[in-house]
């Protein structure tokens, strides 16, 4: 049987949750915290559902309008950053038909324009982040984004 390369989330030490459109990922071994939005959430969701890199990119260009070479380039950089940060690993599985339609990848409406490239925002050192008072030391967008004037202790 033919095989295809996919990405697997490095569980159990990598955990994630979609919170009001923002994907929060945490590496429980390193204590690093990551935030992903928009198209990055789409790619992560496709990855979690077992899509190969080619399938992810095909779905992406099917859904979003924009400059295709640019979209693909930025998406490949994003996937590389997931691998570099030990959030996912490559694996081989038996090739099967990809049954996912683009609108099934995420449980919420998709934007039709590739408005922002997928970015993995990294907040390192959870111990410092947890020292921040989540009401008073924090910018309007909430923990873990500290007020500019008050660095983590």
């Amino acid at each position: 049987m033919e095989q295809k390369g996919i990405f697997k989330v490095n569980s159990p030490y990598i955990v994630s949750e979609l919170i009001d459109g923002e994907l929060v990922i945490m590496n429980l071994k390193s204590g690093n915290y990551y935030s992903v939005r928009d198209t990055g959430v789409f790619l992560w969701s496709a990855l979690e559902k077992g899509c190969s890199q080619d399938e992810m990119l095909a779905l992406l260009t099917d859904v979003y309008n924009g400059d295709i070479p640019s979209m693909i380039g930025q998406s490949l950089l994003f996937i590389k950053s997931l691998l570099d940060n030990d959030l996912v690993s490559q694996a081989m599985v038996a090739q099967g038909p990809n049954t996912w339609a683009a609108d099934q990848i995420m449980g919420q409406p998709l934007l039709d324009k590739f408005t922002s490239p997928p970015v993995l925002e990294v907040f390192s050192d959870m111990q410092d982040l947890l020292l921040l008072d989540p009401i008073h030391d924090i910018a309007e967008q909430g923990w873990p984004v500290a007020k500019p004037s008050r660095p983590a202790e």
């Binding site: 919170i19 204590g31 947890l130 989540p134 909430g142």
Partner: peptide, 23 residues
Amino acid sequence: DPLMGRLKGVYRRFWCENQQLFF
């Protein structure tokens, strides 16, 4: 509400704390 961003932050923080605690 303007406070929703911070409330979301508190939510994120306790999500992380509990994930770490259970792990």
